[in-house]
Amino acid sequence: MARCCAFGDAMSSAKPIRILALDISTNPGFAVLEVKRLKSGPRINLVHVASVSTTSKSPDSHRYSYIEAAATVVLHEYGPFDVVVREHFTKGRDKRATQTVFGAWAVIDLALGKYGYKVDVEIQPTSVKRDVAGKGSASKDEVEAGVRRILSLPDDFTFRTDDESDAVAIGLSYLIREKIIKPKE
């Protein structure tokens, strides 16, 4: 959480703040948000959003290697980051789902560690939904609509997967919780 404390200091300077937000699963989403403090208020820029898709037909070792490689690309091409945030996860729908998500979690942590990062903040899924969409039981479509509203995304902007819009939502939830931005009504 040390980076979070430094985050407040950084917001008072002209230097943009970069956030890496992660929606971790065997099809993880990655979002890079940059916040600039302007006299008119903070401006959020969606710098990068991506996801990778793996299949249960592949051995876990292949899936995890691909996920680690994707995380490494984002870290290498879009860092440095001031804050790394992810959605909190404790249990999947069954034992196998839990195992594979924790495997993806571990290889992303491995990639983060190679670049000197760790996850600074974890946010509960219901909190992300409430912060971005207005209710803790929001659907995937409602979360994406909240992301679009907060970022004022153009109608022709497309998220390839729910994992991408969820990753952005996690980053926005962090910004809302830290009172760096206010959700748009």
Rank of each mutant, 00 (worst) to 15 (best):
L22V: 03
T26H: 08
N27K: 08
P28H: 11
G29P: 00
G29I: 02
G29V: 00
V32P: 12
V32A: 05
V32N: 07
L33N: 01
L33R: 00
V35N: 02
R37S: 09
R37Y: 02
L38Y: 04
K39W: 00
S40L: 07
S40N: 14
G41N: 05
G41V: 00
G41C: 09
P42Y: 10
R43N: 08
L46D: 01
L46T: 05
L46Q: 03
L46R: 05
V47E: 09
A50C: 13
A50D: 13
S51K: 03
V52Y: 00
V52M: 03
S53M: 04
K57L: 12
K57F: 06
D60I: 00
S61Q: 10
S61G: 04
S61I: 08
H62F: 11
R63C: 10
Y64T: 15
S65Y: 01
I67E: 04
I67W: 00
I67Y: 02
E68L: 05
E68V: 01
A70T: 07
T72E: 15
V73Y: 09
H76K: 13
H76A: 09
Y78N: 14
G79C: 05
F81H: 06
F81W: 11
D82E: 09
V83S: 05
V83T: 06
V85Q: 10
V85R: 10
F89D: 12
F89S: 12
T90L: 10
K91F: 13
G92P: 08
R93Y: 12
R93P: 08
R93I: 11
D94A: 03
K95Q: 12
R96T: 12
R96L: 14
A97M: 09
A97H: 05
F102M: 15
G103K: 09
W105Q: 15
A111W: 04
K118A: 14
K118R: 11
E122W: 09
I123M: 03
T126Q: 14
T126W: 05
S127Q: 14
S127N: 10
A133V: 01
A133R: 01
G136C: 03
S137K: 11
A138I: 03
A138G: 05
A138F: 00
S139H: 09
D141E: 13
D141M: 10
E142A: 09
A145W: 08
A145Q: 12
R149L: 10
I150P: 07
L151G: 07
L153G: 06
L153R: 09
P154G: 03
D155Y: 01
D156P: 11
T158N: 14
T161H: 02
D162R: 12
D163Y: 06
D166G: 12
A169S: 14
